[in-house]
């Protein structure tokens, strides 16, 4: 699994919140079918970066972006955000299942938006996705119960299943484990490892151990800039930049 072309890349990407410049000229390449971790202290712009990758950034009033983001070589700013987001799914920091929907309705929500009505087909896809998200065994008997009744870790895996159901190519994960307990965290990390075979994954995390465990490539960001990006092993053992070394060795503010 070495020869993967660039699935997603940004070129001189800048992003603002009002007058505040949150991303400064970020250029990064995300190879296909691998896990790219983005680490850095809070407020360094790592979440903003991945929110630019499926144009969620611009849903915030007063937020805007400049520069280029390419998906398979095509600029995403020339695509419709609605269609783009079906190719580039997102998992959020806090699990956010729809509280009024059952588990199965949560998983199939994206498909039903697109007009798929066939009940049997929906159930089939829901089962597949729940299996992929390693949740099937735990919920197969209560598919009609509300998704909000699950535990935090289960809710997050439900959200992953929901994102997988629309069959995306890229999964953006914005600190998916920060609200979870250690056991749920390790389950999600295993899941990320398995999903890598079929999806391109970008994982934002403030947890360096998690980045080291779960990713193939790691990018370090600081104050809105991309400081360093390389093979995970290399970044953690022989970082090129002084700032990276300070951060991963814990000598940091």
């Amino acid at each position: 699994m070495d020869d993967h072309g660039q699935k997603l890349s940004t070129q001189h990407l800048q992003a603002w919140f009002g007058a505040h410049l949150a991303l400064k000229e970020v250029s990064i390449d995300i190879p296909g079918n691998r896990v790219t971790a983005i680490i850095g202290p809070s407020g360094c712009g790592k979440s903003t970066l991945i929110r630019c990758m499926n144009r969620m950034h611009e849903t915030i009033p007063s937020a805007r972006a400049a520069g280029a983001v390419l998906l398979d070589g095509r600029s995403i700013y020339q695509q419709d955000p609605v269609q783009l987001r079906r190719q580039v799914g997102m998992i959020f920091q806090k699990p956010n299942p729809f509280p009024t929907m059952s588990i199965i309705d949560n998983v199939t929500a994206g498909l039903r938006l697109n007009g798929l009505r066939d009940r049997r087909r929906l159930e089939e896809i829901a089962a597949q996705c729940l299996q992929k998200a390693a949740l099937w065994e735990e919920v197969k008997d209560k598919l009609r119960y509300p998704g909000a009744g699950l535990s935090g870790g289960q809710q997050q895996r439900l959200c992953i299943a929901r994102a997988l159901a629309v069959n995306p190519e890229v999964l953006l994960m914005d600190e998916p484990c920060s609200a979870l307990d250690p056991i749920s965290t390790s389950k999600i990390e295993e899941l990320i490892h398995e999903l890598r075979a079929h999806y391109t994954i970008v994982l934002v995390t403030h947890n360096m151990q998690q980045a080291a465990r779960a990713s193939d490539q790691t990018a370090f960001m600081y104050m809105g800039r991309l400081v360093e990006c390389g093979e995970t092993r290399q970044v953690f053992t022989t970082p090129k930049a002084q700032q990276t070394e300070d951060y991963i060795t814990g000598r940091f503010g």
Partner: peptide, 27 residues
């Protein structure tokens, strides 16, 4: 209605009205 509900719908590729219909109004 919390914003993460809106973002959940948008990230699934919902249009703005679909976001209102599936996430905001039911909540």
């Amino acid at each position: 209605v919390p914003n993460d509900q809106r973002e959940a719908a948008l990230a699934l590729g919902a249009t703005r009205w679909e976001m209102i219909r599936t996430a905001v109004l039911p909540y």
